[in-house]
Simulated assay, not measured.
Amino acid sequence: MPLLNRRHLAMLLAALSAQVAAQQSAPDGPIAQVEVKGSASYDPRRDDTAARIVVGREEIARYGDTQLADVFKRIPGVAITSGSGRSIEVLMRGLGGGYTQILVNGERTPAGFALESLAPEQIERIEVLRVATAEFSTEAVAGTINIVLRKAARKRQREAKLGYLASSAFWGPTFNLEAGDRGEASSWAVTASGNHDSMSRESSGLEENRRPDGVLDLRRITTLAEQGRVNRLNLGPRFNWTLANGDTVAWETLGTGSSFRNDDHIRVATPIGRAPRVPDLLIFGEFDDGLLKSDLRWQRKTASGSQLDAKFGAEWSSRKSYVDRFGVDADGRPETDGSMLADTHARGVNSTGKATRTIDGGHLLALGRTWASTTRRAR
């Protein structure tokens, strides 16, 4: 017999012997079964591409932040700059303004929307996209930040938080309320948050100018003393229903309001050179922002694996600022450049529709349309 056939025969006899021994040694009665189950967990930061960073709800709530600016400070590649009061601007790659696109639930924010008016408790996740994608608008140069608000309640929830903010420049009480419940075919959730902050801070700056021959011909020392107060209120009710045919309907509303009052006192000392026209200046400012946004969404999943989504929304926003300036010149005479008033109101309606289907290879085919109409009034 060839050597190869002998080896095959030996392996076959050994396998049969092991099977017989196992049957003879098996105890009487049913054989115990062991079932192992596993689920693939999804970690957005680990599984998504390097062009996208996702900060989930767990990470947002981990540090107990009361302001959205504190959450952004921990996101790689995102920078925060402060404006008047507690207003913030988000920058990517050093570019802000119209270069960094800010979205809420994948949609552009309405006119008059103040990013700092959102509370961390209202946010489900923050998506940071460094490159253009087909999912969102590609009009941003630096990148896109999509803030996804919290949706339906996953369980019965009743939670209230009271706090007090104390820092070198701001101090005051804060509150946050969360309530929600889930039934067999419906769920609801309501979040409310607000704060009242007082502000007091001082800063100084030095300005010098030297001529080409090295002679110092200007030296100014500027001091700024600022005092003010900030009030904010956020409200976000959400309702979800599952219809008899399996369709889902969701209604969510976002309302925010904030007011800021401040008094600035600017003094400029000029030991060398020419003094400014108004070296002693008082500035009083009033800034009020309001936003009301409501969306009704419908979703259906078909037997063929397609998904249909439709949304109809309405929004209203308002931004008002008033600044009054008064001072004295270098000779002590009253000097003023008057007051400035800016009042902007916007209202509009919008509608979107989308159909998606998973095709061979795990690819996703999506078709959609968007319609919006907005009216702005400014004075």
Rank of each mutant, 00 (worst) to 15 (best):
S117C: 02
L103N: 10
Y99I: 00
S87L: 05
A114W: 05
L68D: 01
T109L: 08
V104D: 06
G97D: 08
P76T: 15
G98D: 13
L91I: 00
R86M: 07
A79I: 00
T66P: 01
D70N: 15
I60A: 03
D43L: 01
R93M: 03
L95Q: 15
I75S: 12
A61H: 07
Q101I: 03
R86E: 11
S117Q: 10
I88N: 05
G96V: 01
T109A: 09
R108Q: 12
E107L: 06
R46A: 10
A114L: 11
E107K: 13
G96D: 08
T49M: 01
G97F: 01
G98Q: 14
E59V: 09
I75Y: 10
F113Q: 06
T66G: 14
G83C: 07
D65Q: 07
L103A: 06
K73W: 00
G98E: 13
G112W: 10
E116R: 14
G85P: 15
D48F: 00
P110R: 12
R86V: 13
P110S: 10
P110T: 13
T49L: 04
S117Y: 04
L118A: 08
Y99T: 10
R86L: 07
K73Y: 01
L103W: 05
R93F: 01
V90N: 05
L103V: 08
A61G: 04
T81S: 07
L68S: 01
Y99N: 15
G97V: 04
G97K: 08
S87V: 06
E116L: 01
N105T: 06
K37Q: 06
R57S: 12
L103R: 07
R86Q: 13
G112F: 07
A61K: 12
R86T: 15
A50E: 11
G112H: 09
F113P: 09
E116A: 13
G64N: 11
G56C: 00
F72L: 10
P76L: 14
S117R: 06
Y42R: 01
R74K: 12
F113A: 08
R57M: 00
T49A: 10
V90P: 11
N105I: 03
R74Q: 13
A40M: 03
Y63T: 12
P76Q: 15
A40H: 03
G85C: 11
V55K: 05
G97Y: 04
T109W: 05
S87A: 12
L118Q: 07
R93H: 09
L68G: 01
G98V: 10
L118T: 13
P44T: 02
R45H: 02
